[in-house]
Simulated scan of single mutants.
Amino acid sequence: MGEKRALLTDRWFIDQVTAVTQQFLRSLPDRGASDTPGPSRTNAGPDALTARAARLSAERARLEEEEAALQADVERLNHAHLPHPGPPSPRPVPAAGPGLDAETLTLAEAGRIRRAYKITEAALPRLVLEAAEDGRDASAIARDLAVTPSYVYRILRERVRYTWRVDVLTDKTWAERGTGHAVVDRALGSKAALAEKVLAETAAPHPARVLVWEGRRTADEDAAHTLTRPEPGP
């Protein structure tokens, strides 16, 4: 229950519940008046009382259904940002390309394309470096990613992709603890700085070590940098 709910959503829910409650109270008959003209309520027969009880029961059930629907709407709005399974969109978002028409683009489609664009932009340096590791030339990479060759050359010149692995010493044997990769600025000592950062963030018992490779991971002896954290002293 520690989740902080949006003030607008809570305010809307409170207003709706208040409206439903007031509607329910207005639906109750005045205690000082009878349901129908004629004899007083105390003199109403069993049939009248049964009919009145049925009406109140139906009204209560209807209000309970409305309250449940309102609560479901609140939960849906509060968790709209979370991914959840559901029926497919009635209008699928087209992939950005030559057939995309700006005149018919919807707000939802534009939002999804913009979000996808930001993710793609963040991934471009890694994709360029991985493609270069596969032996693709700059012009082919630029064509596949719809960027200029100069952009590809700049990434290859200024950025580097490292693969790292963390080991811990168990029974005098190094055992793998975790792996990962990082794209960083190409600079003197960048692989050493990465190893320091990874080892500092690794909650591993002493001793531990980090091996760093430029590009893909290969044999341990081919690691570009190795950093070992020694056992603590007595």
Rank of each mutant, 00 (worst) to 15 (best):
L199C: 03
W213Y: 04
A208M: 09
F13V: 14
G86D: 08
A193C: 05
A69H: 01
S150F: 01
L124K: 00
A192H: 00
P29G: 10
S27W: 06
A122Q: 15
V152A: 02
E66Q: 04
P87H: 10
L194R: 03
R41P: 00
A61P: 04
A132N: 07
T148H: 02
R159F: 06
P234H: 00
S190R: 08
V17I: 14
T36G: 00
T218N: 08
A61K: 04
E221D: 10
T9H: 09
D220C: 11
R186V: 10
A203E: 10
E64G: 00
Y151A: 15
T42P: 06
R55H: 06
W213M: 07
K4G: 09
L156Q: 05
A131K: 05
R177M: 12
R62N: 03
P37Y: 03
P92M: 04
P125G: 05
E121I: 15
A19G: 01
L100Y: 01
V20R: 00
R26H: 12
D73Q: 14
A203M: 14
V20N: 07
E75P: 09
A53R: 08
W213S: 08
D134N: 09
T106G: 04
T226C: 10
V184W: 02
A200I: 13
A72S: 09
R159Q: 10
L70C: 03
H181C: 14
D15N: 12
V93A: 03
P234F: 07
L77Y: 01
P234T: 00
P205H: 12
T120E: 13
Y117G: 14
F13K: 10
L227S: 01
P46D: 04
E103L: 13
K118H: 09
R154L: 08
V128M: 05
D47V: 12
E64V: 06
A122T: 15
T226M: 11
G135C: 07
E59G: 04
D144M: 11
L211T: 06
E231F: 08
A123I: 11
R41Q: 02
R11K: 11
D47Y: 00
R41T: 04
G215L: 05
L194W: 00
Q23Y: 07
D30Y: 04
A122V: 14
P88S: 15
R143L: 11
W213K: 02
A195F: 03
P87T: 13
F24C: 11
L156H: 01
P87N: 10
T18Q: 08
L227G: 03
A96P: 05
G180K: 15
N43P: 13
